[in-house]
């Protein structure tokens, strides 16, 4: 009977799986410790979430064609230096730490074994750039979303790649709707959904609806919690302002920009844009103009 070997097989897979979990465990531990402060909570907590996080990292590994630091490299470098996929949802190309990355996590070889071993694993920094290659990261995002449907970042990242690089607008919209169903209050997903309508469907009406809904959600939540993620708010306001400008509702556009100015790190630039818009709006409403300042 093959029972003993099956047992070995099982043992093997358990070990392998454990090992592959080590990495996300390390990361999520470091990550959520900051949030919850309780190690026990993390260890005992939702293992699905840990797994989901692992697959998100996997997606990032695939994006780099397997060139990725192990936990040991991270220990030597002090901290994980590569953004996980969810951090850079506005396009992988503009990593914050691009410069850091280009130098690579790999230090010069320490000994001959180290030098020799670099022939046997990806040791050069690359991204999936050939047309369509980005599809390879999708399975991991899909699985991550199945495991942890409340991580909205997963949906944003997947939608970005589906829309921008793989020409799969339907799938992007469907996936975002799925995420919206799981996270009805997520302004992040509403923002992405709005971009699908605005940029790909050419449907400003619906884009405006979801963005406005997103804005409301943001305000509701910021009223409840003290601190909020301003990034999505800025993005939504910018997009709404642009949309209204295109649609000719200049006052509305201005009002969005005014709100944007209060949260933007670059209020002066926004003010310039406001001024520009006001000038465009000036001729039809010349009477009101002088009164406004």
């Amino acid at each position: 009977m093959p029972a003993p070997s099956l047992l070995f097989g099982l043992l093997c897979s358990v070990c392998f799986t454990l090992a592959t979990w080590l990495q996300p465990w390390h990361q999520s531990w470091a990550g959520s410790r900051a949030q919850s402060g309780s190690l026990l909570n993390v260890v005992m907590g939702d293992s699905r979430q840990l797994l989901a996080n692992h697959f998100l990292v996997k997606a990032d590994v695939y994006f780099h064609s397997g060139y990725y630091p192990s936990i040991f490299d991270q220990v030597t470098r002090g901290a994980p230096h590569m953004a996980t996929a969810k951090d850079d949802h506005d396009g992988k190309e503009d990593h914050d730490h691009e410069a850091n990355e280009e130098s690579g996590f790999l230090q010069p070889p320490r000994d001959w074994i180290d030098r020799f071993s670099r022939h046997f694993y990806p040791s050069r920094h690359t991204h999936l750039e050939k047309p369509g290659e980005a599809r390879e990261i999708l399975p991991w995002l899909r699985i991550a979303a199945d495991l942890d449907p409340h991580n909205v970042g997963t949906y944003s990242v997947a939608a970005y790649w589906l829309r921008q690089h793989l020409n799969k607008v339907d799938e992007a919209e469907q996936f975002l709707r799925e995420g919206w169903r799981a996270n009805p209050d997520s302004y992040e997903i509403l923002f992405e959904l709005g971009r699908v309508f605005d940029e790909n469907r050419n449907d400003p009406e619906r884009a405006r609806n979801v963005w406005e809904l997103g804005l409301r959600k943001w305000h509701e939540q910021s009223a409840r919690h003290a601190r909020q993620d301003n990034f999505v708010l800025e993005q939504t306001l910018t997009q709404l302002a642009r949309l209204e400008e295109r649609e000719g509702n200049l006052p509305k556009a201005v009002s969005y920009l005014e709100e944007l100015k209060t949260v933007s790190p670059l209020p002066d630039t926004i003010q310039l844009q406001i001024n520009e818009l006001k000038q465009k709006a000036a001729p039809p409403s010349a009477v009101k103009g002088p009164k406004s300042p």
Binding site: S5, C12, Y62, G132, R135, E136, L138, P139, E171
Partner: peptide, 28 residues
Amino acid sequence: LNFFNDDKIVRYLKEICLLLIWISALTI
């Protein structure tokens, strides 16, 4: 499995297949 109606996705499958091959070969 169907991922976003894309039937050209292959690397995850290669990875899983190779992992199973490694486990099986080591076991044997």
